[in-house]
Write a protein that binds this DNA or RNA. Sequence first.
DNA 1: TAATTTCAGCTAAACGATTAGCCAGGAATT
DNA 2: AATTCCTGGCTAATCGTTTAGCTGAAATTA
Lengths: 341, 341
Amino acid sequence: MATIRDVAKAAGVSTATVSAVMNDSAYVSPELRTRVQTAIEELDYAPSTVARNLKRGKSQLIAISVADLSNPFFSHIVCLAEAAAAAWGYSLVVFNSDEKTEAEKRILTRIRALSCDGILLVPVGEAAQHLQRDLTGRTIPTVMFGRVVDDRRSDTVTIDNESAGRQATNYLLDLGHRRIGSITGPLHLTTGKGRYDGMMQALQARGVTPLPEHVRSGDFREGAAYSVAREVLERPDRPSALYVANGVMALGVMRAVSDLGLRCPEDISIASTDTIPGISGLRPRFTRTEHPANDMINEAFRMLVGRINNGVQPTPRNVVFQPTLVVGESCAPVLATAARQ
Amino acid sequence: MATIRDVAKAAGVSTATVSAVMNDSAYVSPELRTRVQTAIEELDYAPSTVARNLKRGKSQLIAISVADLSNPFFSHIVCLAEAAAAAWGYSLVVFNSDEKTEAEKRILTRIRALSCDGILLVPVGEAAQHLQRDLTGRTIPTVMFGRVVDDRRSDTVTIDNESAGRQATNYLLDLGHRRIGSITGPLHLTTGKGRYDGMMQALQARGVTPLPEHVRSGDFREGAAYSVAREVLERPDRPSALYVANGVMALGVMRAVSDLGLRCPEDISIASTDTIPGISGLRPRFTRTEHPANDMINEAFRMLVGRINNGVQPTPRNVVFQPTLVVGESCAPVLATAARQ
DNA sequence: TAATTTCAGCTAAACGATTAGCCAGGAATT
DNA sequence: AATTCCTGGCTAATCGTTTAGCTGAAATTA
């Protein structure tokens, strides 16, 4: 690998001049400039960011740690983050905490060791204590994404989870459903709790009280959602509609529906929050609330890069985005459902 | 942040001794050792990996560049790769070349600049020349994944694309289909060409010649597959079955089918190669060939880490995996289809 | 005792960039 | 003509590690 010294020798100039050309940090005469540039071309020189980073105290790396990389929502987030990182001149190091506190600890240690310039963190959240210890010790600029564990200290980018739960539930209520159940997320997560709260608010506002047996908590994964949904749907008093707290669980519920020989929306209406991209060719399309993921990631990067460049500001910023309801064919009016029973 | 010199001064030893304690690379007397350790504790010292990497010429980073990060197949690959990287003690830097040669060039330069220890590359492939220049100049251990641009020089991990095309097509033939069309991948890619060839082999073996208008090439994305599929399906002599070269295109085709008011498999049978994970709750489930992605990634990492540790070996290894056929409900016997027309 | 070996721990030279500070020589000023 | 001012480009120090090579005292051997 060619070094800056090789280029300097080849171009007959000093390393300082080569550096000046690379970063145009000082005026260099046109002649020397072209000589340097051809030498760079010739030797196919690329500066060592490792050396540069040592000198500058930066690593040009942004770390992202997501809670479940096998969830298409987070895959999508990683995809958007990669593009944003590239646009800002960073590279993206990807970690999967897999909803495990232990894994998250290891990841944060690793991120420190790599001296990443910033962290985009979807916190696992069950135990926030270690986060404070790990993050505030060495203040690496951090933006919490999607979930919140300590909204007083960190910058956060989230969606209004209560609104998501309310919107989806209101849609079901508007169709006349009253026997509404839910597969919620884990209630110790803000995403799980918020959507659950939103749903309950919507129900209470219309004076509807769900059966406790119809409201079950999942873990945001396909498998558990499948088995919990089976249990709920096998009951003789099964609900006429379900609110499902995320996209992959909605798929699990749908699998349960079809394995039980039920049909959606004829036998059961399903509304969810969050969705799987690209499956609009398959029927039924889900009625769901969607996150403005692109805007969220862009905002997160703007905040993160701001912190990286301007140092840590005293007041953390919390930006909340609004979900939007998208109607598919997974819900039917309750009259139709009742007629079939 | 405390440096090794601060620690050395505090402990009254040389930096070499501190370094020796950190990596236990040499014997240090118990007394000095404890003095160093308390000094480290005292100053909350963590060595700068940036400096260490500069010196060692290693970065503990493995780069993965995929051709389309928005494709769930590659998301899945990234997910598996993250786990494999962590298991081997590396961190994963993710890049998306988005099927663009220019982007791939920039990515390779960036990877070099970051001095990643190894590369897992899904090459864009249209122009392999620059790859040779970029990769052989500085021999960063590289494993080509999924696609091949120069199978003589690089390690590769691939699937038997021809077999995939043959298996899917034979399934359609066995159902009695003869008017078979295809949405292929780009034919300049080994994945596109191989699957196409496999399909043609299967057809020829049964003496079937497809109409050229029924065999259209896509770009492995949902959008183009949708429009091309519409064109094919709107023809009065539309095929009774389609072989679709990857999972997201199959979704696009399915969207076209449903937008045209057709039904799958009643009006059109669809078999594909590659699939979208987790959608088995939605109907119809695709009949498709699947890749052993997990085994493939594990093998790729074994090869890559081997190269990193043992230096570049003379003979490149090419490992080819076999796809397996998984039957869903997206295909019907031709008699049923004919009866409806 | 003198010569040799051993080895804990030190010194200093890297790694490859950035950059403060310097120098030479041409232009401008007096 | 002498002085000052610019300014393009160079020299060399620096970032924080690792590590080859050295030193000198203790241990071993003859």
